[in-house]
Amino acid sequence: MAMVASRAGVSGQTVSRVVNASPRVDPDTRARVERAMAELGYRPHRAARALRTGRSQTIGLVVTTLATVGNSRMLQATAEAAAERGYAVTLVTATRGVAEAFDRLAEQEVDGAIVLNEASALISDAQRPTGLRLVVVDAPREDGVTSVHSDHAGGAAAATRLLLALGNGAVHHLAGPADSFAAAERERGWRETLLTAGIRPPAVVRGDWGADSGYAAGPALRAASAVFCANDQMALGLLRALSESGRRVPEDVGVIGFDDVPDAANYRPPLTTIRQDFAALAQRAVSALVDAIEGAPERGEASVVPTVLVERASTASR
């Protein structure tokens, strides 16, 4: 740092302000210091900074699996959002429970943690380490815990309303796992929309988020005229099953998914779906966590990110 200060013609304190992104440095001076840092190959020493500030500039991310689209996309979005705030991300899988995952994060001295999706449902059974700041993604509202989730129920309601408006009969539902908060909310949105329309909801057919389970659900949904699937991967499997049984989409069956995965527009036919904004979810989760780490009071609020209906060729009017 002294070498950088000497080359840039500034004090060590000014270099420190630039390193720590302080606004108290004019643009020309900041540019001169950053140029000197680049010329000298200077990098802040994370361990030394941690000793000085008491923070590691690292947040933990707890998952049960990365096999699902939602978890893998949230991992990428969270890493990007954390980097924007100057934080690194360390990933742990809750293969032995969330309590064990929290212990591993405490050993790594992370400043806080984000718990994703299925892992969030396990938090009530775990004792989080004292002082560990926490944000959960896709979990029921809990006093004192900050949470972020998509408007799953609202998205499901929009999908169901579209299928009804297109002249379909009762809309069937290919649901996600019974222990998933997101799946339960999507099922709730579908069910309440049908009841509001005076339609008795058909029996739910349940999958496991994977395309194979969507394909396996084909026989149970063969006679349906409309199906709202709890995610795009299960919708993909269902499209194949319907095609093999001679049912045309959308002429015979309207199908809607959830997530808007990058490949959804290239399904056959292109899939109408509910888009989740994973970048916004990650931004809100990271911002809430980092703000708490850096001194803001933890308010234990629930933040809901809107979803968007994306219409494609898998739905058509009767």
Rank of each mutant, 00 (worst) to 15 (best):
A159R: 00
G210V: 12
P177Q: 06
G131C: 07
D143I: 06
G189L: 00
N168K: 14
S180V: 03
E187P: 01
P202F: 02
R200S: 15
G154D: 03
E192I: 00
V171T: 11
P202V: 01
A178R: 14
A159D: 02
G131R: 07
V137T: 05
G155F: 05
G131P: 03
V135E: 11
G154K: 01
A184Y: 00
G167M: 07
L122T: 08
E118I: 13
V135C: 06
P129M: 06
G210N: 12
G198W: 04
L132K: 05
G155V: 02
R200V: 15
L166H: 09
A158Y: 03
V204K: 08
V137M: 13
W190F: 12
R188S: 12
R186W: 11
A121E: 14
N168C: 14
V204I: 14
A165V: 03
P201F: 10
E118Y: 14
N168A: 15
L174R: 06
G144H: 04
L163H: 04
G144V: 04
A175P: 10
E185K: 08
N117K: 11
S124H: 15
A119T: 13
A197Q: 03
S124D: 15
R188D: 09
Q127D: 15
R186L: 09
A158E: 11
I199R: 13
H152F: 07
G198N: 03
V148E: 14
G198S: 01
G198Y: 04
E187Q: 05
T160E: 00
A165K: 13
A156L: 08
E142W: 06
A170S: 13
A203V: 06
L116Q: 12
L132F: 08
R133L: 14
L194E: 03
I114S: 10
A182Q: 01
L166Q: 13
V205W: 03
R133K: 15
A184L: 12
P202I: 02
S120F: 10
V136M: 12
Q127M: 13
A197P: 00
S124K: 10
V205D: 03
A119M: 07
A153C: 06
F181H: 12
E142D: 11
V136R: 13
S120M: 08
H152K: 01
A156H: 00
S120G: 11
A165P: 03
L116F: 13
L162A: 00
V171M: 10
Q127H: 15
S150P: 01
E192G: 05
G169T: 04
W190H: 09
R161H: 14
R161T: 15
V205P: 02
A126K: 03
H172K: 05
A156G: 14
A159L: 00
E192V: 05
W209K: 02
